[in-house]
Amino acid sequence: MLYINQQKSALQASTLADLAEQLALPTQGVALVLNRQLLPRALWAQTPLSTEQDHHIEIFQLVAGG
């Protein structure tokens, strides 16, 4: 089962990049946490989302102000 920001999701994606595309995430300024690991965008395409286990995903907007 996939959980996105604590909500169950019916989406099925083979990789994080696939998921990001289905969610139409912006191409910049977004952080994606998979099972408590913050993964750079460069790793999304090579990070599989196996269906054999639960995946907890958190998505949030990065900010840069001060």
Binding site: G29, L38, P40, F60, Q61, L62, V63, A64, G65, G66
Partner: peptide, 28 residues
């Protein structure tokens, strides 16, 4: 939104996370 990051020479760096061409719209 509020965020913190603590990095050193053994860790990932900030540029691993952000695209240097990111057009930041989210500022104060």
């Amino acid at each position: 939104s509020a965020q913190l990051y603590l990095l050193n020479r053994h860790s990932a760096c900030y540029q691993c996370l952000v695209d240097p061409d990111w057009q930041v719209l989210q500022n104060c």
